[in-house]
């Protein structure tokens, strides 16, 4: 095959991957604490590919990684006392792993209490306090109030403080699904003392559906024109074979 066809193919592969990511963004447009993602593509120059040296080296398209936009999503009121939204970029709630795995981090503050009064996520994972311990509520003390610094109090007495940490480098986070992130670096994040916790509210996803639909159109058209390019190349080689055959 000619270089042109291979280059067109590399573009089509990244476009398909981009479509997968846009589809995931749109599917999660209503997921609390979801952060929008995009594919980072780069020009990849390959010097040792076979070419005739007339136009320089051919360059392919290569997907380098997934970029996440960690800007905050819109905050909406829910009326549930255990829903908490985090204000500030790069700060996360600390979530424990019941199976003894590493600590996870989330922006989705839709917590509940389980049958024993522990504060847990929707999946039943314990929410950790600033010291890394579980938080236990007392049902006889009525609805808890959560202050801006994350202090939970019931009946006028503090029962714990939500653990909130800040990541300075957000690219060390890897997604686990269920709104959870995992720290892939060896550095432990610092406590975020300046983060603000809002009770009775949830952070929506920061997906801008208008942008995603525009991306969708762009991806489709780019894919179609690359397909057209391959078609033309195919046509070209077919015709040249025909013509050369006639001369012979």
């Amino acid at each position: 095959m000619e270089n042109a066809a291979l280059i067109a193919l590399s573009r089509q592969m990244t476009l398909r991957r981009e479509l997968d990511i846009v589809a995931n963004n749109i599917a999660n447009a209503d997921t609390s604490g979801f952060k929008v993602e995009g594919l980072i593509v780069e020009e990849e120059t390959v010097s040792h590919a076979r070419n005739f040296g007339v136009y320089g080296a051919p360059s392919f398209v290569l997907d380098q990684g997934v970029g996440r936009d960690f800007s905050p999503g819109a905050i909406r009121q829910t009326g549930r006392p255990l829903d908490v939204a985090l204000e500030g970029e790069g700060v996360f709630f600390r979530i424990g792993d019941p199976n003894g795995g590493p600590e996870r981090y989330t922006r989705d503050g839709g917590f509940t209490s389980d049958g024993e009064g522990r504060l847990v996520t929707r999946d039943g994972r314990p929410v950790l306090d600033s010291g890394g311990a579980e938080i236990v509520l007392d049902p006889t003390q009525g609805e808890p109030t959560i202050a801006q610094d994350g202090t939970i109090s019931q009946g006028g007495e503090a029962v714990g403080q939500l653990g909130v940490v800040r990541f300075d480098v957000l690219s060390v986070l890897s997604k686990d699904g269920d709104g959870l992130y995992r720290n892939t670096s060896n550095e432990t994040p610092a406590d975020a003392t300046d983060a603000q916790v809002r009770q009775g509210m949830l952070e929506g996803s920061n997906v801008d559906t208008l942008v995603e639909i525009t991306n969708l159109i762009q991806i489709q058209r780019a894919y179609e024109s690359t397909a057209r390019l391959i078609e033309n190349l195919n046509d070209l080689s077919r015709r040249s074979v025909e013509r050369l055959g006639r001369v012979g």
Binding site: N24, A27, N28, T31, G65, V66, G110, S174, G177
Partner: peptide
């Protein structure tokens, strides 16, 4: 960062 592709959404 690597490429992580999510496969959708589920009811929590």
């Amino acid at each position: 960062t690597g490429i992580q592709i999510g496969v959708g959404v589920r009811a929590g």
